[in-house]
Design a protein around this nucleic acid. Structure first.
Length: 122
DNA sequence: TTGCTGACGGCAT
DNA sequence: CATGCCGCCAGCA
């Protein structure tokens, strides 16, 4: 039991669940999602999963960014990247420069993270 | 079964 | 700071 394929499927499901848990107005990175899913070196796999998501998927894929809070998506799908940026700003996430987000401010801390008393607004 | 590709990550140029 | 190359790992032909 526990074949590789099954593991991959379970991992994919876990990734999807994590992405849905990203609070509105916050963002996470591919590597972070992978790590939270229990697969530290599977950032690419996260991307593969999100790419396979149907259009009507409730998963906020736009909240998943590349390392350092960058919109790495732009190089492969400029149109989608624009949608992503639009959605983010619409949620209150400020995208600066060519497509960068301040993770220190909008970065998600994880599934257990709650809006603590600490005001991160500097 | 083998090989190539890829919503990435990190370092070098 | 922007661009490029290599490395990691699972999915797919």
């Amino acid at each position: 039991m526990a074949t590789r394929a099954a593991a991959g499927s379970a991992l994919a499901a876990r990734i999807g669940a994590l992405v849905r848990k990203i609070p509105r107005g916050r963002v996470a990175t591919y590597g972070q999602i992978a790590a939270l899913a229990g697969a530290p070196r599977h950032a690419r796999f996260v991307g593969a999963v999100l790419r396979r998501l149907p259009e009507g998927s409730p998963a906020p894929w736009h909240r998943v960014l590349g390392a350092g809070g960058r919109l790495s998506l732009a190089r492969f799908a400029p149109h989608a990247a624009q949608t992503q940026r639009l959605r983010l700003e619409r949620e209150g996430v400020r995208v600066v420069g060519r497509g960068r987000v301040d993770l220190a401010r909008y970065g998600w801390r994880g599934p257990a993270a709650r809006r603590g008393p600490s005001a991160r607004t500097k």
